[in-house]
Simulated scan of single mutants.
Amino acid sequence: MNEKTYQVLFVCTGNSARSILAEGLMNNAGRGGFVAHSAGSRPSGTVNPFALSTLRDLRLPTEGYRSKSWEEFAGPEAPALDFVFTVCDNAAGEVCPVWPGQPVTAHWGVRDPAAFEGSDAEKAKVFMETAVTLKRRIELMLALPLDKLDTMAIRREVREIGTR
């Protein structure tokens, strides 16, 4: 059994929906072995209420989330990151800060549920679909024998997960 606690950062542009969902999902599923954070390249300053209601519908905590800059995770006081995942195409194409500790990075792009236009019920459905995709990817990652793989194999596996 691996004793390490992995630090994971989910990055998006606004840090209001997808990265928030991923943070909540990883903190729940990876309890004890993973601590997840989220941030944005250009944070919106608010968390999308549909992201919070989706977490609530999944019976996950909804307190403590805030839209914040990825710069918070690039400074000397930041946790040493083991993994950084971009969950939107815009953030994947941007020049990221230099992350302390040389974390494994991968793109796990999912469509932006906040960009969907429709009724509240339709929006809730799109947010849940996004959460289900992220949850599946997180579960696949958590199933990896990280303590038995070298860095190159881990990098290859987490990048492959982003295509599923």
Rank of each mutant, 00 (worst) to 15 (best):
Q7N: 14
Q7G: 04
V8Q: 00
V8E: 01
F10E: 00
V11P: 00
C12E: 07
G14V: 05
N15W: 00
N15K: 04
A17Y: 00
R18E: 00
S19A: 06
S19F: 01
S19T: 03
I20Q: 10
L21V: 04
L21S: 00
A22M: 00
E23V: 11
M26E: 01
M26V: 00
N28K: 15
G32S: 04
G32F: 06
F34I: 11
F34K: 09
V35E: 11
V35H: 13
V35D: 10
A36I: 02
A36G: 12
H37S: 13
H37A: 12
S38H: 04
S38K: 06
A39E: 09
G40A: 12
S41F: 12
S41R: 14
R42F: 08
R42A: 07
P43N: 10
S44A: 15
G45V: 05
T46C: 07
T46G: 11
L52P: 14
S53G: 05
T54K: 04
L58H: 12
L58Q: 14
T62K: 06
T62Q: 09
E63Y: 11
E63T: 15
G64Q: 00
Y65T: 05
Y65I: 06
S67Y: 05
S67W: 09
W70H: 12
F73R: 07
A78V: 09
L81W: 03
L81M: 14
F83Q: 06
F85R: 04
V87A: 11
C88M: 01
A92L: 06
G93H: 09
G93L: 08
E94M: 15
V95K: 13
C96H: 11
P97H: 08
P97L: 06
Q102F: 09
P103L: 07
V104D: 09
A106S: 08
D112W: 04
D112K: 07
F116I: 12
F116A: 09
E117R: 15
S119T: 15
S119K: 06
E122Y: 05
E122G: 04
E122H: 05
E129T: 02
A131M: 06
V132C: 05
T133L: 14
T133I: 15
K135I: 05
R136K: 13
R137P: 04
L142G: 06
L142S: 05
L142N: 04
L142V: 02
D147G: 15
D147S: 14
K148Q: 14
T151M: 10
T151F: 04
M152K: 13
A153C: 08
A153Y: 01
R155I: 09
E157V: 03
E160S: 12
E160G: 10
I161R: 01
G162L: 08
T163I: 09
T163L: 12
T163S: 12
T163R: 12
